[in-house]
């Protein structure tokens, strides 16, 4: 519109309260609506495809042998994933043992002792940057710190690498949880004579427990499928690792090794391993969601 005058525009009907939108504007809207629906379908397609292929290929070989037997060498039939399942659990326990205290203690400091200070902002900035560190860099870091120092690839090195990736996830959810507890709760505890430590350990932490658990489960979900960080920290092992100071097989590294191998039997086992990880992640996400729902204080 260049001139302000009283002649009705093409889209309006004079004399009535109702109006119609010009057809080209309507058409444009419909085209855009069609486009975003197409976007949504296109984005859903890979997910559906991944879920279907992982479930069908994974279930075709699934059986008790998966949990009791070792991965087969090339050209040998059968076999299972025993050492990789045990190895994945071992590495996850080690990484949780490092990252849970780290993440929760840092969250307590940021939300309870240094809330809204410059230092808290700096720590949060560091955590956000840490969460963007590529997993292969975390692997290189653990290689330098643990593998070079101890002279062996090990589950501990893998755990350290995964812990670097888990700390930011745990800290963020824990901080959110602590901040969701109203200030009055703390003031009440301090008012009856509790120290900061007593308030936090006996009132605030128990109240925010669902949040803490959500963070830990989400971090474990991330760690369960992590591969790049384990390639040269936990490495791989054809057999059972006899201690945490030995190279350890994990499901994710097994998928990588077997997916690029030319042998059909090993490829099938890679799908079973993918199936196990996906089932674990699905269960964990559902648990995290359930816990998250109960977080209203």
């Amino acid at each position: 519109m260049t001139t302000p005058d009283n002649t009705p525009t093409s889209g309006t009907t004079p004399g009535t309260m109702s109006y119609t939108v010009a057809p080209q504007r309507k058409l444009f809207g419909n085209i855009m609506t069609g486009l975003v629906i197409a976007c949504a379908l296109l984005a859903a397609l890979p997910l559906v495809s991944i879920l279907i292929t992982v479930i069908t290929n994974g279930l075709s070989r699934f059986g008790p042998a998966i949990f009791t037997e070792l991965p087969p060498p090339p050209l040998v039939d059968g076999g299972g994933l025993r050492n990789a399942i045990v190895g994945t659990l071992t590495v996850m326990v080690i990484s949780a043992a490092i990252s849970v205290p780290f993440g929760i203690m840092a969250a307590i400091y940021v939300s309870e002792f240094a809330r809204d200070t410059k230092l808290a902002n700096a720590v949060r900035f560091g955590i956000n940057v840490l969460s963007g560190v590529p997993s292969i860099i975390a692997g290189l870091f653990a290689y330098g710190v643990v593998v070079l120092a101890t002279g062996t690839f090990s589950a501990v090195a893998g755990g350290v690498a995964l812990a670097v990736l888990m700390i930011p996830i745990i800290e963020r959810t824990a901080e959110e949880g602590l901040k969701s507890i109203p200030l009055e709760v703390r003031q009440g505890a301090l008012g009856v004579g509790a120290t900061n430590f007593q308030t936090i350990s006996q009132i605030v932490l128990p109240a925010s427990l669902p949040f803490l658990a959500t963070g830990v489960t989400l971090a474990l979900a991330r760690a369960s499928g992590e591969t790049a960080a384990l390639l040269f920290t936990a490495l791989f092992n054809q057999f059972d690792a006899r201690s945490v100071w030995q190279p350890t097989a994990t499901l994710s590294v097994l998928i990588y090794n077997f997916a690029i191998s030319p042998y059909k039997n090993q490829q099938e086992l890679a799908w079973v391993a993918a199936f196990l990880i996906m089932v674990f992640i699905l269960i964990v996400s559902i648990i995290a969601r359930r816990l998250g729902r109960r977080t209203q204080f």
Binding site: A43, S49, I50, T53, T227, I277, S285
Partner: peptide, 25 residues
């Protein structure tokens, strides 16, 4: 539920994407 599915898509490990990429995509 769609938002949950998208969260799930974000949680799929990259090695599974690689496996799927080789044999399906």
């Amino acid at each position: 539920p769609i938002a949950f599915l998208i969260e799930l898509l974000a949680a799929v490990p990259s090695v599974v994407y690689g496996l799927w990429g080789i044999f399906v995509f």
